[in-house]
Design a protein around this nucleic acid. Structure first.
Length: 429
RNA sequence: GGAGAGAUGACCGAGUGGUUUAAGGUGCACGCCUGGAAAGCGUGUGUACUCCAAAAGGGUACCGAGGGUUCGAAUCCCUCUCUCUCCGCCA
């Protein structure tokens, strides 16, 4: 959520930053709402002060056996007036909050301007600066490889749950688990604390991180309880600090969590319909930082490096892209995407998205820190990034390390997690 | 799922309708005392919003959440959430 005071004091600047995302926003309306709210608040609080004064006085008179009838009479008229004012005030507050909570975060000044993904800026590539050399044979798509190996069963997924669900079998299931364990161990080595959060969350959490109220159609909801399946571990893990006041000395918090993620992909009809790229359910290892405001910029660089390192250890070619203003997610102030090279598709595909949300989520969550020196309270900054999306990593391994005979070489670092296995081979029927 | 007990400030804990603008204690901060420390004594000690040009200083709300009763609610009534204990069921 944006700071109402910032909108009040610097409306032109806020408006121009919002416009850089590609869409105008009605700050006039919010300003009017907020002003009306404050007028109501002043009036209400004046009456409340009077009410409290009268009540105190009546109490005093009662004790002294005095006559309180005049005060009681005043209360007769004041009471109903106050009640209706309080209702109006609350309605206006809710209206203001509703209007502000659908505004996206302001892009950081360092974010490249642009309309859509065309405007994104490539920052670096690994291992070299050129596109990876093509394989010595025609590269297959991961779904072909996976089906031939007998490790990806799309039909079974559809039978059990529907389109965009897949069953992993044998070495595929094990590879998925190996990736999760490898990533968790790597990040733990780099100082992250492992967290296993709930996979279902309440509405407040989703409002806190920004998925609600705007993007409810992207979420799976439960029927009999007010709970949603998490679209990312970012939601439960970031919300660990909701309504908390953290001691400055305890920051930064750095957490890593494996979860399955559940997305309805409502707006993605027709996109990536084959294969594992876009599923309703997938595993992801997520990195979350909670920092002091002045250190979040540096934290984003570090977090992104921590994600890049996973790809490097696996030997997967990738590039790092700075999202432009028009391509930023709702809560993000600045985002780096990591895109892995997929030979089967002949293109880079997103495998990680690392964002600094500044105080945007913190304000929604009321997550704060207490300064050591001044004992003052202020909002923390929150960051999150995939480290990495496990399903897409599995795709990248199949496509990058495929052999002409249909086998797939398992990256060295994963072999300890695969019982020493170094090669996935087609099932002998 | 059933029965019972709870939820009060950083923490413990008093408070069953009006001098409670939340007692008292612990902790923390500062000061006094001391050669230094401890003890002792004193002072202070939440969050959010808002008023004021700003500062100083006010005001309002918040005793798990939401409703209700009342001139007035931490306190009485209703609903819900969570915690604990016992029982049942269960990975």
């Amino acid at each position: 959520m944006l700071d109402l005071k910032l909108i009040r004091d610097n409306p032109e600047w806020v408006e121009s930053r919002l416009r850089s995302r590609g869409k105008g926003h009605d700050l006039q309306g919010i300003h009017a709402l907020e002003q009306a709210k404050r007028a109501l608040q002043t009036e209400t609080e004046t009456l409340q002060a009077r009410r409290n004064e009268i009540s105190r006085e009546i109490g005093r008179l009662k004790v002294q056996q005095g006559d309180a009838s005049a005060l009681l009479a005043e209360m007769q008229s004041l009471g109903p007036r106050l009640k209706s004012l309080e209702l109006l005030l609350r309605a206006k507050e809710e209206e203001t909050l509703a209007a502000v909570s659908v505004l996206p975060n302001l892009p950081d000044e360092s974010v490249p301007p642009g309309q859509d993904e065309q405007g994104n800026v490539e920052l670096r590539r690994w291992p070299g600066t050129s596109e990876p050399a093509p394989l010595a044979f025609p590269a297959k798509n991961h779904w072909e490889i996976g089906e031939q190996l007998g490790i990806l069963d799309f039909d079974a997924g559809a039978r059990v749950a529907g389109a965009r669900f897949t069953v992993l079998r044998g070495g595929g299931a094990r590879l998925n688990r190996a990736l999760v364990n490898f990533m968790l161990d790597l990040h733990a080595q780099h100082g992250y604390t492992e967290v296993l959060p709930p996979f279902l969350v309440n509405r407040d959490c989703l409002v806190g991180t920004g998925q609600l109220p705007k993007f409810e159609e992207d979420l799976f909801a439960t029927r009999d309880d007010p709970l949603f399946l998490i679209p990312t571990a970012e939601v439960p893990v970031t919300n660990l600090v909701r309504e908390q006041i953290l001691e400055e000395a305890s920051l930064p918090l750095r957490m890593v969590a494996w979860t399955s993620c559940f997305r309805r992909e409502a707006g993605a009809a027709g996109k990536d319909t084959r294969g594992l790229i876009r599923q309703h359910q997938f595993d992801k290892v997520e990195l979350v930082w909670v920092t002091r405001p002045e250190e979040s910029d540096a934290a984003l660089e570090q977090l992104t490096r921590d994600a890049e390192r996973v790809l490097e250890q696996l030997g997967l070619p990738y590039r790092t892209v700075a999202l432009c203003t028009g391509d930023l997610g709702f809560s993000a102030r600045k985002t780096y995407d990591l895109e892995v090279w997929l030979p089967g598709q002949g293109q880079y595909r997103e495998i990680s998205s690392c964002s600094n949300t500044g105080d945007f989520q913190a304000r929604r969550m009321q997550a704060r820190l207490r300064r050591k020196e001044t004992r003052k309270v202020e909002l923390v900054h929150t960051l999150n990034g995939s480290g990495l999306a496990v399903g897409r990593t599995l795709v990248a391994i199949l496509e990058n390390f495929q052999c002409a005979d249909g086998c797939v070489v398992i990256p060295e670092v994963l072999r300890p997690y695969m019982g020493g296995l170094s090669l996935l081979e087609p099932e002998k029927q």
